[in-house]
Design a protein around this nucleic acid. Structure first.
Lengths: 211, 211
DNA sequence: GACCATACGGAGACAGTCTCCGCTTTGCAA
DNA sequence: TTGCAAAGCGGAGACTGTCTCCGTATGGTC
């Protein structure tokens, strides 16, 4: 009676489990070396399984990525709790969380792209992960806002996207590191400290009123 | 002897010219509708020419994009001069220039990607264009910095990449408009006004071994 | 040991990029 | 005009990558 309630999940066959984890191992290496656009069939070949096997386990690239990121989720959650525990200054905590997120989003070359896409098409297997981190960001942010360490008009989603954008700028193989740092710094002045809303050109009347 | 000096350029045949401009017309429409990843062969077909013809005129996607952007270059330069002429406040001028750049970088869905890539691989046909705009940005920026309207540590390249990153966030079909605005605003507080350098987490004395 | 659900492999359909080469068109010169 | 070389054209097809389908193998269970 392995099958109790109606929609019970059956434990997969052992060869299936073995294949799955092996594919993940290989994919991790392959994506690290070739970026997330590396060929899936190549991964299958390298893992010594047929293409069908790969696609049965992971119907598309995003699914595979999501599985790989799930493995890193634990690390990131650990880091999150660590920051919460050890950083008393809520603004500094937010900064550190964003930094951790930034490193997470740079795990593979090209990763920011599907992550951003997942943020607007919630059918993606990555969507849930992203949404979760947006929520976490929001928590850090709200704490900082309560303490007057972050501007009230900023949203967690904005910061998350900002982090992705910065990771995106870094591009392949840490190309534009210095500009990425500059962007992070600029972004920080954008959220840090309680201040009035900075105005955008498109918001402002054409005559900027001399701040 | 039509050939005078060694490396003389021969005026292309009339059918070639006709094809070239027609391909550009079609490509403009096709990229507008399908984003820059739209199939090149489809463009050829839609233009009623063979694939060979398309690839002879534009050896790859970037070359085609570069040609399309060259057509818009004139508009952007006009805008630039207009801003220079009509905006006395140098910081506001910079903001308006960045806004214009942002609209330029959103001409087609997905455009920011090759633009950013061109900034690090200068073999790309887009590289020259980008470099030019970085220079323009630098000029606006330096004027603002002289007037104390922009922080001294910021570079034109950083701002250009920031604009690209914001355009990238907007994603396909203006998806994340509000976040894009938020980012622009944050970025603005990053460059505007002379202030001390904001610190990044990674700059900070971050003891990796257990902060 | 038999049975069958589960999983496997890989051939191949499909789509996109890009090249190659035989044929056509253009423009110049006689 | 006519002839002809250079310039340009078209599209078949090589190549690469994604993803499906189905005949075959295998693990787990009774």
């Amino acid at each position: 009676m392995s099958e109790t309630t109606g929609a019970r999940e059956r434990r997969p066959r052992t060869d299936a489990q073995r294949n799955r984890t092996h594919i993940l191992d290989v994919a991790e290496r392959h994506f690290s070396e070739h970026g997330i656009t590396g060929s899936l069939d190549a991964i299958a070949k390298r893992a010594g399984v047929g293409a069908g096997t790969l696609y049965r386990h992971f119907p598309n690239r995003d699914a595979l990525l999501a599985a790989l990121l799930r493995a890193r989720d634990e690390d990131l959650m650990t880091r999150r709790d660590e920051i919460r525990r050890e950083e008393a200054d809520s603004a500094a905590a937010l900064a550190q969380w964003l930094d951790a997120l930034g490193r997470w989003a740079t795990a593979f070359d090209g990763l920011p792209e599907p992550l951003r896409a997942a943020l607007t098409e919630d059918s993606s297997p990555l969507a849930l992960t992203c949404q979760g981190y947006v929520t976490d960001t929001d928590e850090f942010l709200r704490a900082a806002q309560r303490d007057g360490g972050a501007r009230p008009e900023v949203r967690g989603r904005d910061l998350f996207l900002g982090v992705l954008a910065t990771a995106w700028v870094r591009g392949a193989a840490m190309a534009d590191e210095s500009s990425a740092r500059a962007l992070t710094a600029m972004m920080r002045s954008g959220w840090a400290g309680p201040a009035r809303i900075a105005r955008t050109v498109s918001d402002a009347p054409h005559r900027p009123d001399q701040t």
